[in-house]
Amino acid sequence: MTGHDHHHDHSELTETQLRVRALETVLTEKGYVDPAALDLLIETYEKKVGPRNGARVVAKAWADPAYRARLVKDATSAIAELGYAGRQGEHIVALENTPNRHNMVVCTLCSCYPWPVLGLPPVWYKSAPYRSRAVSDPRGVLKDFGITLPAGTEIRVWDSTSENRYLVIPMRPAGTEGWIEERLAELVTRDSMIGTGLPKQP
């Protein structure tokens, strides 16, 4: 059974749009939601909170060994030092990548993700392919991302089944000695903080 023809798909989206609009109207009329609050919620996660937060955390960990130590000991507090905290990041654990160990984070059961440092998760993170394969075939998943790790590297996959959230601290690329934090942060990709990518090279 092949897919539906193109404009049938569009009418499904339209049905969803109508339902969402209808519910928003009902909830607003009943006084359960304030439209201005809704707009702020959207703006926060569309524009304000995103992976640049996590990149600053990682860059600081690269540049400042004392910060890295605090991050490893109590990531929630260390991250809060930079002003990032709250919803879906109340309990964060930092996972250090080393030459022998590569960390990957998944939520097989839904889409748990450290919002305060990475923003909202991308579609692929929430998708059946990732959720099903990350825990059984992480090397296959890394290949989908164009990454091959040495055969002997230990791969640690962390399934986020509780409110605990994980942030991968990728390895600092060579050739960045003496770089300031802002410049280091530019090398830190979102995927490198999930474990499906590596930081950019200088």
Binding site: L38, E46, R133, V141
Partner: peptide
């Protein structure tokens, strides 16, 4: 389920209704 398919430069929301559904749920 097939391969993982990342979308380059993926937007946070793929449609206006997604933004509203997201915000309504949180609110």
């Amino acid at each position: 389920f097939g391969p993982v398919e990342p979308e380059p430069n993926e937007p946070v929301f793929h449609a206006g209704w997604e933004k509203r559904a997201f915000a309504l749920t949180l609110a």
